[in-house]
């Protein structure tokens, strides 16, 4: 892509934003408007900005982002469903000076992998956990997630999530924030430019904390799922703001004490 362009009226403009070099050229397989891609972009932008591509090892989950390693141009491992943080633990323990992140969805992290998630955080593994919470199982076709909202219609809760039968949405980020060994726990989103800027700051800080060996950093990203929610991407933004954020309020849950 050109570094500079001349506009029609002769004004010269310089490139100020481009696709991060730490992404591969492979086009995303995600549905139009999916937050996964935005978070991939931001994550890889931070890796490029911090110059840590050579030190970074990622762990992909099972779920829509099972192919995260097709897009992120860093060394990666694909974990079994729910086990990404255990795999990340294995990597980090034998290479404590490398930077390790796991990237997991709500089913992976908060249902089948709850034990691994809690215990990884409880050990304070010096890794970054990126948790994509869109309240639904996207890959398998829109089934109920542990984080689906009360009354939410999914293919396995066709009359709405009945909390008397299946319980309430699990606020696992709040649980993780209670654990003494976690260092930085925050809930972010990627639904508008400001949110993306904040998310980028949170990821940047998390990698810096990891370099300083501070312990587990945990970032929940409250995300959309246009296909699973059966909405247009633009409609999902409204749903996030009006329905998801009131239940999953954005902001830091645990910040380092200075």
């Amino acid at each position: 892509m050109e570094e500079k362009l001349i506009l029609e009226d002769g004004i010269e403009v310089e490139q100020v934003y481009r696709r991060p070099e730490t992404l591969t050229d492979v086009p995303y397989h995600y549905c139009p408007g999916c937050s996964h891609s935005v978070v991939h972009n931001v994550l890889m932008e931070v890796v490029a900005d911090l110059g840590i591509q050579e030190q970074t090892i990622g762990v992909a989950p099972v779920g829509c982002s099972v192919f995260a390693y097709h897009y992120m141009n860093v060394d990666m491992q694909e974990a079994a469903h729910g086990r990404a943080s255990a795999v990340a633990t294995g990597i980090k323990r034998v290479m404590p000076d490398k930077l390790v992140f796991s990237y997991q969805g709500d089913g992976d992290l908060a249902a089948i992998g709850t034990a691994e998630t809690i215990h990884t955080a409880n050990r304070g593994e010096n890794i970054l956990v990126v948790f994509i919470n869109n309240g639904i199982y996207g890959m398998t076709g829109g089934q109920m997630a542990p984080t689906s909202l009360p009354g939410m219609v999914t293919s396995t809760s066709p009359y709405g999530r009945d909390v008397s039968m299946v319980g309430y949405p699990l606020k696992i980020t709040e649980l993780v924030a209670q654990l003494p060994a976690t260092y930085y726990v925050t809930r972010q989103s990627a639904h508008n430019p400001n949110a993306v800027r904040k998310l980028k700051k949170a990821i940047t800080k998390s990698f810096e904390y990891q370099q300083q060996k501070k312990g587990t950093c945990f970032i929940e990203v409250v995300s959309n799922c246009p296909s699973g929610w059966k909405m247009t991407p633009v409609e999902t933004i409204k749903y996030l703001e009006e329905v998801m954020f009131p239940y999953y309020p954005l902001g830091d849950l645990k910040v380092p004490k200075n």
């Binding site: 491992q77 633990t89 294995g90 034998v94 691994e116």
Partner: peptide
């Protein structure tokens, strides 16, 4: 379950 997946991660890291 966690043990064997830690083994996976560490073995994958060489």
């Amino acid at each position: 379950v966690a043990s064997i997946n830690m083994v996976y991660g560490a073995a994958g890291a060489g």
